[in-house]
Amino acid sequence: MNDMRVLERAVDNQDLKIAARDVDVYYGTTHAIKSVNVEILDKTVTAFIGPSGCGKSTFLRCLNRMNDTIDICRVTGDILLDNEDIYDAKVDPVQLRAKVGMVFQKPNPFPKSIYDNVAYGPRIHGLSRNKAELDEIVEKSLRRAALWDEAKDRLDQPGTGLSGGQQQRLCIARAVATGPEVLLMDEPCSALDPIATAQVEELIDELRERFSVVIVTHSMQQAARVSQKTAFFHLGELVEYGDTSQIFTNPQDSRTESYITGRIG
């Protein structure tokens, strides 16, 4: 664990972006998330870590109501985005998801061209007035996802023809292109090589200037490298949440300590 150096980046923003209050999630009778309270700051990278099956993805999916698509899933408690309850009856999840973008655990590009993949979000949200603007958005997004150099000559080829890692970066570009305020990333680097991982981490760091980023990761090193805040989940509970430097150097809970030193999980 020699590269466990925690970047001493101060959390330079204390504005609250998302607040979860007493959130419980049930899949049928399975209690997947147990009374989680967490406050996610604006312009900050927050990492969710924890052993497999502890509910990181589940909680992440609550933040943009992707759990609505699972019939048996039931969410209770309040999740506030900019002080508005996203589970309020008045809220249209479609509008919410335009603000809270998501990159999934498995790359899932549309079986369309690379260009159309990235342009889809801007198109349906009317973010560009003409083709030139759309081209610009596509290029900028692909650049940010570190895919531009590889993809610029084959924009009209299917996104599904890319390698796994390239597909994941395409999905990131696609999510970024919509211009979300919060970007949720579920293990975005699990299929990437170290170079692409470094590029994505750079991207995440860059995104922090404008968005709030929540990233689920199994790599402690990654959490340490990119995040300012870290939340440790265990068996559906939020065990510990705090500054990344504090979690990794001075965990308060014994379970956190065991996990980051590799004894559980």
Binding site: R97, F104, F110, P111, I124
Partner: peptide
């Protein structure tokens, strides 16, 4: 059709 395609679209804010 793989559900991940639906998720991808919904995740981008498609209805």
């Amino acid at each position: 059709v793989p559900p991940s395609i639906r998720d991808a679209a919904l995740g981008l804010g498609a209805s």
